[in-house]
Write a protein that binds this DNA or RNA. Structure first.
Length: 314
RNA sequence: GCCUCUGUAGCUCAGUUGGUAGAGCAGUGGACUGAAAAUCCACGUGUCGUUGGUUCAAUUCCGACCGGAGGCA
């Protein structure tokens, strides 16, 4: 039986961070963040990364571990985060996985081995050049030939995935469908117990997201963006894709007003939360806790404890 | 007060030389295996401002009225 880990999941602004710390405190655990943006250094306010105070003395991992100029990836995340999980287990403590990036969490729990390649591979560079020169159609044509299954699955406009599929083929001689099928055969690396947090009504989630965005601006999101700019961070960096940072970069560049940026950040956060829910809904082993209007953490911790006890964790 | 423009989906607007209408955004659902806070897919019935008239038929033409914008006084 694989080692047990606790996962706290849910859309943005639903209280994962706080509940995660509470659970870790109660169960002799340490938190491993499963968030693709909190792992960049100096991006604290806009990613709602926990502060030292919010960590309440519980050790946290995978937060602020990468330079914003780096292009991170799931593959690298799994390697580094898994080392943290292993270390926590070795010390006899409970890993509590907390964060909003579904792909990262799933890959970590399943112990995904990713096919070679990546943004810095020669294959990717060559494909990118072909894309720039000839457009997507010849690439899609090639994919239809070597991996018809994937070609049929992807939209002709899903350039990212078409490139990746060809990249895997060029790098390994095997198709990405074969890689994915092989990954699915593998048993998961961890026995995950999922606690999901969500609002019962979407209007309540929207309200909280709006509040949180206003709060971020007050606490200095624009200044944080200013620091990233002052550090000379390239405008093409992955870190700028983070909601909040992208929009306040536009403010710094004089393209939009601060008020417009705030509205945009709220909107994008809402849409992001919706996508997170879509991702999570297909995981039917999540034990959901639904908030009514307000978030009641003592009660949630109580419910979570009962769930974890029933799973033999307490 | 007069003149001109304008009123169509939650929002911004297109359109119908008269046969009851469609884009973008928003919203909802979905996908996702080395960019994932990214990327991509699907879903469009609304008294066409109100009310009279002309017409086989009006959202479309004409009149009046009610909103909105601008101009002249």
């Amino acid at each position: 039986m694989p080692p047990k880990v606790v996962c706290v999941v849910g859309p943005t602004a639903c209280g994962k961070t706080k509940l995660g710390v509470e659970i870790a405190k109660r169960m002799n655990g340490e938190v491993v963040s499963t968030d693709s943006m909190q792992l960049y250094r100096g991006m604290v306010i806009g990613t709602a990364a926990p502060t030292a105070e919010e960590m309440e003395g519980v050790p946290h991992h995978m937060i602020g571990v990468a330079d914003p100029a780096e292009q991170y990836s799931v593959a690298r995340y799994v390697t580094e985060a898994d080392a943290c999980v292993q270390d926590i287990l070795r010390r006899g403590k409970l890993p509590v996985l907390v964060g909003g990036t579904g792909l990262y969490l799933d890959a970590l729990v399943r112990g995904n081995a990713f096919a070679p390649g990546g943004h810095d591979s020669a294959a990717r560079a060559a494909l990118q050049r072909r894309l720039d020169r000839e457009g997507i159609e010849p690439l899609l044509e090639e994919l239809r030939r070597v991996d018809p299954e994937t070609a049929a699955r992807l939209s002709p406009r899903d350039v990212k995935r078409i490139l990746r599929a060809l990249e895997v083929y060029h790098e390994t001689g095997k198709t990405i469908s074969q890689h994915n099928a092989a990954t699915k055969e593998q048993p998961p690396r961890y026995d995950a117990v999922y606690i999901g947090l969500a609002f019962a009504h979407r209007e309540d989630m929207k309200k909280l997201i709006d509040q949180r965005v206003d709060c971020m601006v007050e606490q200095g999101l624009p200044e944080e963006v200013g620091c990233l700019l002052a550090s000379g961070l390239d405008r093409g960096a992955t870190a700028w894709q983070a909601i909040g940072y992208k929009q306040f970069l536009a403010v710094a560049d004089g393209h939009v007003s601060e008020a417009e940026a705030v509205e945009e950040v709220k909107l994008r956060s809402r849409q992001y939360a919706k996508r997170q829910l879509t991702w999570l809904r297909r995981n039917d082993s999540i034990h959901w806790i639904f908030w009514e209007k307000n978030r009641n953490f003592p009660e949630a911790l109580q419910i979570a404890t009962e769930i974890l006890t029933a799973q033999g964790l307490f």
